[in-house]
Design a protein around this nucleic acid. Structure first.
Lengths: 334, 334
DNA sequence: CCGTTGAGTGTAAGCGCTTCCACTCGCCGG
DNA sequence: CCGGCGAGTGGAAGCGCTTACACTCAACGG
């Protein structure tokens, strides 16, 4: 089924069929009628490849993320897809989890889309540079903003400060940090935590690196809480890089016979669904995950359309969600 | 950057460049060398559109799912993407959640891929038929198998029977079912439950339709547990269509001052992450979600490659996961 | 009455690749 | 010494569309 057969059946040229189809250029009412009928009868659908090749655009966006097993990326993806689809673009996904040849995959993706979103540190700087230089519109998500590309992320440092201040208000004075900081956004969180602790004369602890999964959190929890259980070296509060780590730490605490929050307070980040249903329910920082994806899609659209050419960096607000995992609320709030 | 410039720089024809690039047909060692150098110097990447148009294939797969906000679809998608990517295919996604023009979106998607996976009842039968007739390879996921298309789903009826039998073993005799049954897989679950209850002389209850979300479950929980709280008409066990509904029911129970599992037992389905961390931890049925996606990708690959032409239907085993939400385990089982 | 205009249409040139086919040219066996 | 063969290469025809450009022709104003 090609445009030629439609043209033949309608008794016109392919140019006219195209014009009737796209409403570009004048077509007599009668002719349009004939063409549309032929299209109907042959149930013709223009080949996307032909269209794209001729138009020089894909009408598709890409997104690169590390994983989809946690709710965080899934939510962002959902917001992204929704907006992209509304803007008439298909969405191609690429997960980098445990993949060796990320570079090649990203390059391939770049050849299939009009622009793409890249999450955090999923892709090496060199490759990002290469993509950017090839004039593929690019939006970086949850990554330290750079001058030459768009960036969308959510506020981290200030909410980390709020969270830490809240914990100090509980009267806690020994802290531990759990979670890798090779992700830019996590680093920002730790920065906020450190600043507040230092400001209160508390020497900030070194973050304990761990994978941002329940299992990673569990391992970290065993390390942090298991060692000096009775000798006072156990932290009174564990601030975790995300909710999954926090859930893992809580599992570890339970196993060690510790009460959360009685013996140790635990906080997360993201406000994933399980945070609300866990017992104790997690104190955490809510990120506007879906909005993050949606904004990235819009930014990318502007870049692709050329509506905007100067790079833009957007930071979305977050919200401290206090639940029971940080302990009963003392009357005096800081 | 086109193949012509590479050819010119290497002093050969585009045919030779193509052959050197794809290793199709003979190329003298020296020539290959020259070509590869030119490619390197110009940092040339073949246009995906050109390749696809000439080869008549997209090297891409599609997947249509209703939502991504729960962990279920995200996990399946993850398994799907992983395998598809390993097979050298990109993945296009389409979420139908709250979208009006699903038909057009699906048609568009069909024009961009070599084959696609469609989840449950996301797409009208008429459109599925149309896609199938257009010879686009198709795999249906978690949907009642049909003769003319591939299907991958996980076992539902038998595990529902196992779950129900287990609950009967607890001594429970009044049941409620929560969850819409317009999804094929949920219907199968209810069938299993009904069969066992009938077999034990218990009249199976009508499922209470609700959205498969925490909110939906909460609403259902209020209805089921709130009404005849004291008059003995409250069910002793609520079997939920999935974990999210179960979590919602538990929230409702808590709010009504009921103890789970003391006053009412609750079970879910899927074994999502929150199921393990919820208190009480959910008794549920584990679906091999990632495997589901992976198998669908492989089935699709066979169809696309033409390795297999007869439709195939695969059913993956599930596993009953007993946790505390169904009550302390009586010594006598079954 | 003729030149101008613009609506309506067709021709053909791409878009960037793959691949069939034809061609050249050493080399081998008869 | 010659026909045949196969390795190596180039020419050119697609793949299915969009669109610049040329063309026809009726209507209109001067």
């Amino acid at each position: 089924m090609t445009i030629y057969e439609v043209a033949q059946r309608a008794g016109v040229s392919i140019a006219t069929v195209s014009r009737a189809l796209r409403n570009t250029g004048p077509v007599a009412a009668g002719t349009r009628e004939k063409v549309l009928r032929a299209i109907q009868e042959l149930s013709f659908t223009p080949s996307r490849l032909g269209v794209s090749l001729a138009q020089g655009r894909h009408a598709a966006n890409g997104i690169v993320f590390p994983d989809l097993s946690g709710p965080y990326f899934a939510e962002v993806l959902l917001g992204y897809e929704e907006v992209a689809s509304d803007l008439g673009r298909s969405v191609l996904i690429l997960s980098t989890r445990g993949r060796a040849a990320v570079q090649d995959l990203v390059r391939d993706l770049a050849g299939r889309v009009d622009g793409m979103v890249i999450f955090g540190r999923t892709v090496e700087d060199a490759v990002v540079d290469e993509i950017a230089r090839s004039r593929t519109p690019l939006v970086l998500l949850a990554r330290d903003p750079v001058e030459w590309a768009d960036a969308v992320s959510s506020e981290n440092t200030a909410s980390a400060e709020a969270l830490t201040t809240h914990l100090l208000g509980h009267g806690y004075s020994t802290f531990a940090l759990a979670g890798d900081d090779d992700r830019g956004d996590v680093t920002q969180r730790w920065t906020g935590v450190r600043r507040v602790l230092s400001g209160h004369g508390i020497r900030p602890p070194e973050p304990l690196p761990c994978e941002l999964t329940v299992e990673g959190g569990y391992a970290a929890g065993r390390t942090l809480l298991g060692g000096g259980a009775g000798d006072g070296r156990r932290p009174r509060a564990v601030i975790c890089a995300d909710d999954q780590v926090a859930l893992g730490v809580i599992l570890a605490a339970e196993e060690l016979g510790l009460d959360v929050p009685g013996d140790v307070a635990v906080t997360g980040w993201d406000d994933i669904m399980a945070a609300r249903h866990a017992r104790p329910a997690l104190t955490t920082v809510r990120q506007p995950m879906r909005l993050l994806g949606a904004r990235a899609a819009r930014a990318l659209d502007e870049l692709i359309k050329g509506t905007r050419t100067v790079p833009n960096s957007e930071i979305l607000p977050t919200q401290l969600i206090v639940r029971s995992s940080c302990g009963p609320h003392p009357l005096e709030e800081k």
